[in-house]
Write a protein that binds this DNA or RNA. Structure first.
Length: 882
RNA sequence: GGAGGCAUAGCUCAGCUGGUUAGAGCGCAUGCUUCACACGCAUGAGGUCACAGGUUCGAGUCCUGUUGUCUCCACCA
């Protein structure tokens, strides 16, 4: 059992082996007893094209920590993994490859052949991200892994589309959509990134029809759209323009008569107060156009070039056309002025090109009624956000909901299940692939070429992964609704809110009761990690260098839910050091362990004060950590475990046991060993959700029952191990020890030299009980324990700690003046503190209203501080005599 | 324009429902090869908890305002 362990912990030697052991042991599958409550998490599916980044590391760590915690608590814990087909991202990736390797575009191959290529790509590379997640220690049930384009998900998507269509919640309509002329597809609102850019505001003169020499002046940032103008609008309350409302003006260059209308949309204060209306190329103009029956003239094609309605500008791209139009207007004297204008330009989140609002026929989900239910559900507390403030975020979006454009002009994705009849024009929307028109029976039908927005399938994730639409699927019945959803705040609207909507609509129940939101991982300057900045830190590299456990610890320590985190390699390093600390503490235990040692606590009578102290502290730790984890305060929980291991267990308890371990007293030695092993075992359990690998590795080496730590039982508070009194006594001993060390350091006493500090304690029994340990800790040879007060106090300085008095022979003081100064400072502090306590305690209101415990504590402090001051004064006086 | 976050030690951040003389990691200073660990041990320096008010016996913690900073949503031609 006591095997030779290397001095330095080497995660690389351990992690893969342990992970394999877990996987082969089937421990990632739900482990609950038949009556166990389920605890389910569905993993936010990463893109198949994805490369593991710090965001994934954060995501996975939090989820894995929760799952492992609940698994150990005895829940039937299930973590469902999967990947997302990621429409545009994947398609572009394969297209790029195609172009690079074969010089072909997707059109050269044709839809069917191209899709074969994408699938081939998926089969070759799609598992990469999964393998990378395993490096994070993710304990997902990989056998249940799903892909948003697999058969089951496709069925779910089809079912949802058709059923929403049948309910009239999906419709095809002309709307202004965000169009990317480079990617040649519509983008949802969320896929547009607004970038502040310097631009120009061109003031154009439109002649008023029939009134020679009179103009309206309109301002625009996109003059090329004037080709499609079908009106000019002013505010109905604008006194400047009352007389021209209802008149017409001549659209320059196109020589078209367009009406001047009045609409509230126009802001009196901006520009000239006259706005050109281009209903086909601006969302606001579109709305105004509908109200006033303005013509919809689309002048740009899908690639952003001027089309046949653009007169002589046909064929130019939008920027060329802009130049040409400005030049022409200037020549005609119709360019009033040009102003610099800073404005927010929508750009494609993929390619970065300016988005062009274009009117086109797209599919939409009517969100209004769906959103109402989603709002109600969260209001009723069926789903809670942690931290709570993100509820506002969610509500804000839901309350201002707009219809969701779900069609994308791509090939990779779920193709829209609608067929158009060439003969009667009817649309057939069907769960099965249609072979003929459902209305006229014609076989001249053609399927809609568009595919669905990737988020359309992601929105179904919590139930499609569990077997839906098969309502009888076992997993669905058992694990839906899921428990917690863990994700970053950046996709609350994209994803979380849409899952809530779909869960309520199709399952009749919100998909999870808690949404745990985390922040973004930023670089050490606070910037987002991104490819273009090249400031990303590769989690796999960190794992290779410091170990997975260290990286995971970095993700949870010192971070609170919803807040961003700056990534400091130093922190990972610190966590690596912590792993090593734990490793060596365990080595110490194992080295001293006898062959036949068992993991059982000795009888209470045999426990010594230090044992009771550590057990009692452990007890508190268990209660607190469990509570923190249940409240999703992972950062607080892990900090406590960390402190316990390093401070309580290593720096104090292990040191306290040394005297016994190296003594001849076999019984005392065994007691200490048993407690050492017991506390280590319990601590490993508490730490396991955070640092799964090293804890499992160590746990396998110490005496244990059960197969693996991953499925071991979570520790519980044990009333019989709460030793309040001993805990306090031990703390007082520790304070004395600290004071001794402090004196020694201040007096520059080298360890080899006796400091000749004499300790008298108010509780001598504490000190006499385990002589050995005090000596050791205080550099024993330098301390003499006294049973009674020294008879002659002359030549002694007295220092008082909470429960002990330290007598220091003057001769040992290196510098009397320095010591006097120190005492002076301490006195000053103590007097100040006492004054504040006196004031507090003489305040009747405080005594009357504060809880008794608080008042008593203050009284106690007051007494102690008085004592302290007296002792300090005594020392001061003694020193002054010298 | 609307909403929200953050502001605590040199740096990065914890601090739960208000209650010890405010904490950690890193960094810094001093000493230490003490028989688990120098990826270590010990000791220490360093903070009017952004500013101004308010509530309270009591505020880093709750409320209001100010300043700085970041983010989300909407997007004005």
């Amino acid at each position: 059992m006591a095997r030779e362990l290397p001095k330095i912990y080497e995660p690389q030697q351990v992690e893969n082996r342990i992970y394999q052991m877990w996987e082969e042991g089937g421990y990632f599958k739900p482990q609950g007893k038949p009556d166990a409550k389920p605890f389910t998490i569905v993993m936010p599916p990463p893109n198949v094209t994805g490369q593991l980044h710090m965001g994934h590391a954060m995501d996975a760590t939090l989820q894995d920590t929760l799952i492992r915690f609940k698994r150990m608590q005895g829940f039937d814990a299930l973590w469902v993994p999967g990947t997302d087909h990621a429409g545009i991202a994947t398609q572009i990736k394969v297209e790029e490859q195609l172009r690079k390797n074969e010089g072909l575009s997707r059109h050269d191959l044709g839809r069917e052949k191209f899709l074969e290529r994408v699938w081939a790509w998926k089969h070759q590379y799609g598992n990469r991200i999964v393998e990378q997640q395993k490096k994070l220690g993710a304990s997902c049930d990989w056998d249940r892994a799903r892909f948003t384009m697999d058969e089951g998900c496709s069925k779910a998507v089809r079912e949802v589309f058709v059923s929403l269509y049948e309910k009239g919640l999906i419709y095809k309509g002309s709307r202004i959509v965000n169009w990317c002329p480079h990617c040649i597809t519509a983008l949802s609102d969320a896929e547009v990134e607004y970038v502040d850019k310097p631009g120009k505001l061109w003031h154009l003169k439109y002649p008023i029809a029939g009134e020679e020499g009179r103009y309206v002046i309109v301002a625009t940032t996109r003059p090329e759209t004037m080709l499609g103008d079908s009106g000019v609008a002013v505010n109905p309350n604008d006194e400047r323009y009352q007389d021209i409302i209802g008149k017409k003006c001549i659209l320059p260059l196109m020589n078209r008569e367009i009406p001047i209308v009045a609409d509230d949309y126009v802001d009196l204060g901006f520009g000239t107060g006259c706005v050109k209306m281009t209903p086909a190329h601006d969302p606001n103009d579109f709305e105004v156009g509908l109200r006033h029956n303005l013509e919809m003239i689309r002048v740009l094609d899908d690639a952003g070039k001027v089309n046949e309605l653009g007169g002589k500008y046909q064929g130019m791209d939008r920027y060329e056309a802009r130049k040409a139009i400005i030049a022409d207007l200037e020549e005609l004297g119709l360019l009033e002025k040009i102003e610099d204008h800073q404005h927010n330009v929508g750009t494609c989140y993929r390619c970065g090109n300016d988005v062009e609002p274009i009117v086109s026929a797209q599919w939409f989900v009517s969100m209004k009624t769906l959103a109402e239910e989603a709002i109600r559900s969260v209001n009723d507390g069926e789903t809670k956000f942690v931290p709570e403030r993100f509820t506002k975020n969610y509500m804000n979006w839901m309350n201002n909901i707009r219809d969701w454009c779900i069609s994308r002009q791509l090939w990779w994705g779920h193709q829209i299940p609608v067929w158009y009849c060439a003969d009667c024009g009817h649309m057939t929307c069907s769960r099965e692939d249609a072979t003929c028109c459902e209305k006229c029976g014609s076989t001249h039908i053609e399927r809609d070429p568009d595919v669905l927005d990737t988020w359309f399938s992601s929105a179904l994730w919590p139930f499609e992964t569990l077997g839906w639409p098969d309502a009888e699927a076992e997993d669905l019945k058992k694990y839906y609704p899921t428990s917690v959803l863990v994700t970053g705040y950046d996709i609350i609207t994209f994803w979380v809110s849409r899952m809530i909507v779909s869960g309520l609509e199709h399952m009749g129940q919100a998909p999870f009761h808690t949404v745990l939101i985390h922040g973004l991982v930023r670089d050490n300057l606070g910037r987002k990690m991104s490819k273009s900045l090249g400031n990303g830190i590769d989690p796999l590299e960190m794992i290779e260098k410091y170990g997975c456990d260290a990286l995971r610890m970095n993700m949870v320590t010192g971070n609170s839910p919803g807040n961003d985190m700056r990534f400091y390699v130093e922190r990972t390093e610190a966590m690596r050091n912590f792993a090593n600390k734990l490793w060596n503490a365990s080595r110490y235990v194992l080295m001293n362990l006898s062959e036949d040692a068992k993991n059982a606590l000795p009888a209470v009578e045999k426990l010594e004060i230090a044992d009771k102290w550590v057990l009692s502290k452990l007890n508190t730790l268990i209660a607190e950590v469990t509570e923190n984890l249940e409240k999703y305060e992972l950062g607080v929980a892990v900090q406590k475990v960390y402190d316990f291991i390093w401070d309580t267990y290593c720096d104090w308890y292990i040191e306290l046991t040394k005297a016994r371990l190296y003594s001849e007293d076999q019984e005392r030695k065994e007691t200490a060993m048993s407690v050492l092993v017991y506390v280590l075992d319990q601590t490993l359990r508490l730490l396991h959700p955070f640092m799964p690998f090293i804890t499992e590795e160590i746990w396998q080496s110490i005496p244990h029952e059960g197969e693996a730590l991953i499925v071991a039982q979570w520790p519980e508070f044990r009333q019989e191990l709460a030793f309040k009194a001993e805990e306090e006594q031990m703390e007082s001993v520790m304070n004395a020890i600290r004071a001794i060390r402090n004196r020694r350091t201040e007096m520059n006493v080298p360890p080899s030299k006796k400091a000749a500090l004499f300790v008298l304690t108010a509780k001598p029994q504490i000190f006499t009980e385990g002589e050995g340990f005090l000596q050791r800790l205080a550099y024993a040879d330098a301390v003499t324990l006294l049973d009674t007060e020294p008879e002659n106090l002359d030549g002694m300085v007295t220092i008082t700690t909470a429960d002990a008095k330290l007598y220091i022979p003057m001769g040992q003081l290196v510098d009397v003046a320095k010591e006097l100064e120190r005492i002076g400072k301490e006195l000053e502090n103590a007097r100040k503190f006492l004054k504040s306590l006196d004031a507090k305690l003489s305040n009747e209101k405080f005594v009357a209203r504060a809880p008794e415990a608080v008042v008593n504590a203050e009284r106690e402090k007051q007494a102690k501080t008085r004592d302290l001051i007296a002792q300090l004064e005594q020392s001061e006086a003694a020193l002054k005599k010298l």
